[in-house]
């Protein structure tokens, strides 16, 4: 058993061993640069995901940066143009805000805009999500607007096994990949082999098979959907539960095939509802699978508000198993 955090950490080390053009950069990815203790690796990333890398790979390949996200993103793009495979960390996904130009105007566009004359093998690691009362600027799930950008690939693993295989694919991929790590999942464990493996982008996982409804869920919501389905099993309700794993590219086929069988769709996502991945999946099914549908599609998302601080409010903000179960029952009526 390995945690999501350990799985990612191990993959970073394995990929760095496998290919010396892989580097890691970001704020406190090692920690302890300068300061009075002289201990490098004082942090190993604020979530401990990059711990130990500096010891093995040294400070030329594990680069602690000042607090300068725009420069971190731009440097990752530039290093990729010049032959490296940077894995850049934004300490929190929310800091895409400070660095967005380098992501969506620069690295996303190089390959196309330069007429295919270059590749841009960058991975941006983005700790994401609510649930820890970190309030409006440290809790967001901002993948919708990155998914909207042509040129970027967007990966959202829901468990440690997938995180490992998807990260290896991301690092070996020649396009910029936005790799979202849900903070609440870091300690969650599952069986993860030690040897390296890859998981193809654009291949959803059918987490559970059932007859009555198709449930598509992302990241932390996959576990919540399983809980909801457990609670509904007694009532004889069963569902296909699909985890897309990557939303750009998106495995439309698995979703459409499932809806063809069940005729009903619930999409669950922690992001805000408008122009979201959930809305996008609903639109795809409405456009391409309309004749299979026996009931209106139902979305379970956060409300259209920033993430609130207070425990009670944040709990109400994040979709939970009860919301999901209620939505499933509604589409079955």
């Amino acid at each position: 058993m390995k945690s999501y955090r350990e799985a990612i950490n191990q993959t970073l080390a394995q990929e760095m061993r496998r290919d010396d053009s892989v580097i890691v950069l970001g704020e406190d990815v090692s920690g302890g640069a300068g300061g009075s203790s002289g201990k490098r690796d004082a942090a190993g990333g604020v979530f401990g995901v990059t711990a130990g890398l500096i010891g093995e790979f040294g400070e030329q390949r594990v680069i602690d940066t000042p607090i300068s996200e725009s420069a971190i993103m731009g440097a990752a793009g530039g290093a990729a143009l010049a032959g490296l495979r940077p894995v850049a960390e934004l300490m929190f996904a929310d800091f895409v805000g400070v660095s967005f130009d380098q992501i969506f105007n620069q690295m996303a566009k190089f390959r196309y805009m330069f007429g295919g004359k270059t590749t841009t093998p960058v991975v941006v690691r983005l700790p994401t999500g609510a649930g820890m009362n970190m309030a409006a600027q440290h809790s967001q799930t901002i993948y919708p607007f990155l998914t909207a950008v042509p040129g970027l690939k967007v990966v959202i693993p829901s468990n440690a096994y997938d995180a490992k295989g998807l990260l290896a694919t991301a690092i070996r991929d020649d396009d910029p990949v936005m790799f979202f790590e849900h903070k609440a999942l870091y300690p969650r464990k599952c069986e993860v082999p030690d040897e390296d493996y890859t998981i193809n982008f654009g291949e959803a996982e059918l987490v559970r098979e059932g007859d009555d409804v198709t449930v598509v869920a992302l990241a932390r919501m996959v576990g919540f959907a399983e809980k909801a389905l457990d609670s509904l099993a007694a009532e004889g309700i069963s569902a296909d539960l699909i985890d897309p794993r990557t939303v750009s590219p998106l495995d439309e086929e698995t979703i459409l095939d499932s809806v063809e069988n069940t005729g009903r769709l619930v999409v669950v996502d922690e992001s805000n509802p408008r122009c979201s991945v959930a809305a996008d999946i609903a639109a795809i099914v409405a456009c391409k699978g309309f004749h299979s549908l026996k009931a209106p599609i139902k979305l379970v998302t956060a409300p259209h508000t920033p993430v609130p601080f207070a425990r009670e409010l944040e709990r109400a903000y994040v979709p939970g198993p009860a919301h999901i179960a209620a939505a499933i029952k509604e589409v079955l009526q």
Binding site: E27, D28, G31, G32, A33, G34, G35, S36, A42, A43, V46, D64, T65, P66, I67
Partner: peptide
């Protein structure tokens, strides 16, 4: 310090 990094470095 900025988090875990010394100002003398950053």
């Amino acid at each position: 310090y900025g988090e875990h990094t010394g100002a003398d470095y950053a």
